[in-house]
Design a protein around this nucleic acid. Structure first.
Lengths: 156, 156
DNA sequence: CTAATTGTTGAAGTGCGATTGAAGTCAATA
DNA sequence: TATTGACTTCAATCGCACTTCAACAATTAG
């Protein structure tokens, strides 16, 4: 009998992969990075408690919001280790993300505006146009600063 | 005299870097990838026509929208080679991006909703919840499919 | 003239987020 | 018993977007 039919059994890596859409190789990678943990069967196979699905969902959400795995790990480390996290536990983690989402939406709206006002228009204001969010960009580590310097576009 | 003061002179790589916020190494990399082209001075130094600023702006915008350099190159290849692109030329390129931005904003709003409805809530609906956009995800090449399968969350 | 600055090239290195492959283990089935 | 299939580990590799480095050439300031 397919163990996936038994809602009380822990999940194998391929079952978890099927349920989350995340490849088994990625799940193992996440475990190596400390984002997931699994019990082991007698044969050394991973056995995931069902609560791990929510954890993987969290990882996917966070990635879509642009967080790195290191950041996601730091967030997940805030969860209680001694019990299954409650809805409140999860909500505390995602509390600050609403602001993050709002910022990203705002940036997209600036981008949309920039498409017409600065890229699309025939003016030469690009030299002195600020469309991309400097704060957003300054927060980026590593390669490619990419902030647009100067004063607002005269077209605005 | 600083040649940057002369609005009619072509730009050196460091001037272009300063005006766009893109590192010289990145500008050279873009040239190697076929996204930019430059005339050369007698000494073999790059001389960018001023119109290249708009081109770099386009690259930055496109990157923030999640396009790869290969995709951006394909878009830029649509521009006329025999003359400086007009506003209309640029707008034709960015035409489809408005839809792209709208989709991404919609995804962020689903994500925001999912934070409360599915991650944060105490229900067990995650097993059968679809928050992340399957179409978006299916469009992703390479690693990490990450689509959420199944029926909509009962909480919705 | 000298020294600093800015530029050139090609190759190699970096960081992230994985995937892939080789070699081996284990349980169930033909 | 043999084989199939799912799993294990560890190391290597990949794709992307760059950055860094070494060695050298040219320009510019004092």
């Amino acid at each position: 009998m397919d163990p996936a039919f038994d809602a009380l059994q822990p999940l194998t890596v391929s079952e978890l992969a099927r349920r989350t859409g995340v490849a088994p190789s990625a799940l193992r990678f996440y475990e190596a990075q400390g984002l997931l943990h699994a019990e082991r069967s007698a044969a050394g196979h991973r056995r995931y408690p069902r609560a791990v699905i929510r954890r993987v969902a969290f990882i996917i959400f966070a990635q879509r919001l642009g967080l790195s795995l290191a950041e996601i790990r730091a967030a997940l480390d805030q969860l209680p280790r001694d019990r299954v996290p409650t809805g409140d536990d999860w909500q505390r983690l995602t509390h600050t993300w609403h602001a993050r989402i709002a910022e990203r939406i705002a940036e997209l709206e600036r981008l949309r505006r920039g498409l017409t006002d600065c890229i699309g228009c025939g003016c030469l204001s690009l030299d002195s146009c600020r469309i991309l969010n400097p704060f957003d960009q300054a927060a980026r580590h590593g390669p490619g600063p990419r902030y647009w310097l100067g004063d607002p576009c005269p077209a605005q």
